[in-house]
Design a protein around this nucleic acid. Structure first.
Lengths: 128, 128
DNA sequence: CACACTATTCCCAAGTTGTCAATAGTCCAA
DNA sequence: TTGGACTATTGACAACTTGGGAATAGTGTG
């Protein structure tokens, strides 16, 4: 389960409720910068593109609402006929593109932290 | 502020309360696997070793308590005289070493997600 | 017509976090 | 000796996030 913090069994680990995904905003922002999409599809895209499978759809819809409140994305109801109820299709705004750059730097910082961890971990296991 | 989710200004970003570091457990576990330490020092080590500077000490102490509840770490009050109140020095247990391996795999998954993000981000910016 | 799938939104309990505060020991300067 | 700075841990509480359940609703299938 790459990239994800899946919940397995109560008490087995900290998490589940209350635990933040911590990279959902930049992921969604990037997907929308690539091409407009809607909540239901983003859940699938997050899984296939980034291996993020833990998500309850709620989390994605809420992130979408929050990103829209920041003015980083905008939505319109899709006009085409669909196989189901109407879709709310989001796309990035100009300030959303700027926000993506900021988030990207943040992600790079986290990536460096993870790299440090992995390097130290390998060294520790090599010694033994 | 590499690796960190610093809080700047209210409303400017999702976070502050309720925002998780999402990699604190493996980081602390690794540091303790390298050598025993105590809460106050771990806060410093997290900053210098991993660039994690956002932490309120509380978060670290709580993580320590939780890791101890899992049986992954154990503590004794330090016997030596110190420059201050007594320290609770934690060290990993055998099952803690196993847990570190599991967490390491989890971290690797998150690292892959971040890599995917960064690669897609670079491609997006190259195109424009 | 019931059922599965698509698609979004609201509400709540459970869990996590930062802030404030309390407690306390050591060291140093006024 | 009294106050302040630093070391060190813990408790309580409000603010915030999340997953699950439920509500709403359109479309396609048996």
């Amino acid at each position: 389960m790459p990239g994800g913090f899946r919940n397995r069994g109560r008490g087995a680990r900290r998490g589940g409720r209350g635990r933040r995904l911590c990279v959902l905003e930049p992921l969604v922002l990037l997907l929308l910068a690539e091409s407009p999409s809607h909540g239901y599809r983003l859940v699938e895209q997050l899984a296939t593109r980034f291996g993020v499978e833990i998500l309850s759809p709620q989390t994605v819809y809420r992130t979408l609402q929050w990103l829209a409140e920041q003015g980083w994305i905008e939505a319109d109801w899709e006009l085409e006929e669909t196989q189901g109820p109407p879709r709310k299709v989001y796309r990035t705004t100009a300030s959303g593109e700027d926000a993506l750059d900021v988030w990207s730097a943040e992600v790079a910082g986290l990536a460096r932290t993870l790299e440090s961890f992995q390097q130290s971990y390998r060294q520790l296991r090599q010694r033994s």
